[in-house]
Design a binder for these strands. Structure first.
Length: 490
RNA sequence: CGGGAUGUAGCGCAGUCUGGUAGCGUACUCGUCUGGGGGGCGAGGGGUCGCAAGUUCAAAUCUUGUCAUCCCGACCA
């Protein structure tokens, strides 16, 4: 297998090669759609597992809504249509037939649907048309549903995990009695995402709200978590939307209050997608391959035996099997790779490429000395330690690695966050350094657009708990309430 | 949808200009020596050259058409 392109040579090629060679995903026969391979899917499953647990802890339940949405539902919320209309796949027919000219099958023109169906790009409309039937009184509220699903957005250009035509995600949709309750829910969920990103992905994120330009189609407020990739570009990694009463009004969802009056329901929606896989890859990995945080690694420890003869392997296996049993007892996922069709050197390189946090090697020398060689993926360092107590050692080390890669990412972000006070300085930092640029802005959509047109940088968010010192807009000199976060983004 | 490029073995590519036996690397199969960082040697299997028409004694190579993919731009989680 050839060496990866270096990040410094071509970051985007490095990413593409890494996703494929680490066996996470590949392009499929369908344009813009990917095949998530077992190793990549195993990481996604671990993400799902943790997120699902966090959703349930915060009072949510899972449900499932249809893939298809009647076209008429879509037109009910005006800004929502505007946002998604350009990227919707549409089902127009329900039957094929044999081509009378003998060229395989064709769409049967007699099987045209009376009402065309949209393949969901997101499910607000189908869900709110359903919630209408579920909600009569305040006693029916709140409703806090999540669904794990696939969605389709017909993108022009796609990249594995970062932007694909079909992708997997979860979408939470909640209905509340009061405005404040819906806002609280929106904020709770962006906090859940931030906790997940930091504690499990070891990826520091900024929390903030989007400007009107960047807001979700149909939302009154969009909260976001923004992560910084190693090439200095930002990646929106999760969003949580306060939808106000927009969808309740569009679908006529009202409830009877305690006082006997009738009110529209307040709503939120929130989601993260397989894009998180892209974030995970770009946050930690290096020129040797993937670096996975132990908490999300499908294999936390790989053990490679080094032997000449079969009897030597048997001796090693006895010792290794004990180690495996002890590690499993601690809940550590371990793979003893005693396959004989690859050489140790090949296995070392392979586990490195796939980001396995720890690799143990056991050979005749170790058997003689009662030792094992422990290699860390994050630092690429090796140590020889005693087999006695190796399980405790490994358990500690996995925690250390989790912390270390988080710290490394956090240091990187700190180094690549720059305050600027003039538009000149702003452009200079963007072009020469990248990263998050903290600058004052007058709050107008026009200036935001002008900056985007001139520099390709967008406002990633307005920090929830950032520095609130006022200043002057870097472009117009007008008053600004606080600095906002700019960056070039994926 | 605009600009650029590419379709030849599972993968990566050469061969195309100048038409004449289908090639290389890697992967795969068998044997053997090996094994503490992507092994060595020997033997072997695998391709209607994207598809369709045309020119020619002869087309991967020339002509026309067509399909697909990738990269760069506008859209986006």
């Amino acid at each position: 297998m050839a060496k990866l392109t270096k990040r410094s040579d071509d970051y985007s090629q490095w990413y593409n090669e890494l996703v494929i060679t680490a066996d996470l995903a590949e392009n499929s026969a369908v344009r813009g759609c990917m095949v998530i391979k077992p190793y990549g899917y195993a990481i996604w499953e671990k993400m799902q597992q943790e997120l699902d647990r966090m959703f349930k802890e915060t009072g949510h339940v899972n449900a499932y809504f249809p893939l298809f949405i009647p076209k008429s539902f879509f037109s009910k919320e005006a800004s929502h249509v505007d946002g998604f209309a350009k990227e919707c796949a549409v089902v127009t027919h329900y039957r094929l037939k044999n081509d009378p000219d003998g060229n395989g099958v064709i769409v049967d023109p007699d099987a045209k649907l009376e009402e065309e169906l949209i393949v969901r790009p997101t499910s607000e409309t189908i869900i709110w048309s359903t919630y209408k039937n579920w909600i009569q009184s305040y006693r029916d509220l709140p409703i806090k549903c999540n669904q794990w699903a696939n969605v389709v957005r017909w993108e022009m250009r796609t990249r594995l995990f970062l932007r694909t035509t079909e992708f997997l995600w979860q979408e939470g949709h909640t209905a509340h009695e009061t405005k404040q309750e819906a806002i609280d829910e929106t904020e709770t969920m962006v906090q859940v995402y931030a906790n997940f990103a930091e504690q499990f992905m070891a990826m520091p994120v900024l929390q903030g709200v989007k400007t009107a330009n960047e807001r979700f189609a149909g939302a009154l407020e969009t909260y976001t978590i923004e992560a910084l990739m190693q090439d200095g570009k930002a990646l929106q990694s999760g969003t949580s939307h306060f939808l106000g009463q927009n969808f309740a009004k569009a679908f006529d969802v009202k409830f009877a209050t305690k006082e006997g009056t009738e009110e529209y329901v307040w709503a939120s929606s929130w989601g993260v997608s397989t894009r998180l896989m892209g974030a995970l890859v770009m946050a930690h990995s290096d020129d040797f391959g993937l670096v996975l945080p132990p908490k999300l690694a499908p294999i936390q420890v790989a053990i490679v035996p080094i032997y000449k003869s079969e009897e030597e392997l048997n001796k090693i296996s006895v010792v290794v099997n004990e180690i495996v049993a002890k590690l499993k007892k601690r809940g550590i996922s371990v793979k003893y790779d005693n396959s004989d069709n690859r050489k140790p050197g090949w296995k070392f390189a392979q586990y490195e490429l796939q980001g396995v946090p720890l690799r143990l090697a056991v050979g005749p020398r170790d058997i003689a000395n009662n030792t094992v060689e422990v290699a860390r993926r994050d630092t690429l360092t090796k140590e020889v330690v005693s087999i006695d107590g190796v399980d405790a050692y490994v358990a500690d080390l996995l925690e250390t690695i989790q912390e270390n890669i988080y710290k490394k990412a956090l240091d990187f972000r700190t180094e690549n966050t720059t305050e600027v006070n003039s538009y000149e300085e702003f452009k200079e930092v963007l072009n020469n350094k990248g990263g998050f640029v903290m600058a004052h802005w007058n709050g107008s959509a026009e200036i935001e657009q002008k900056i985007k047109d001139e520099t390709k940088a967008t406002i990633r968010c307005i920090l929830l708990n950032g520095d609130k010192t006022p200043g002057k807009c870097m472009v117009t000199g007008e008053p600004s309430a606080q600095r906002v976060v700019f960056a070039r983004a994926y």
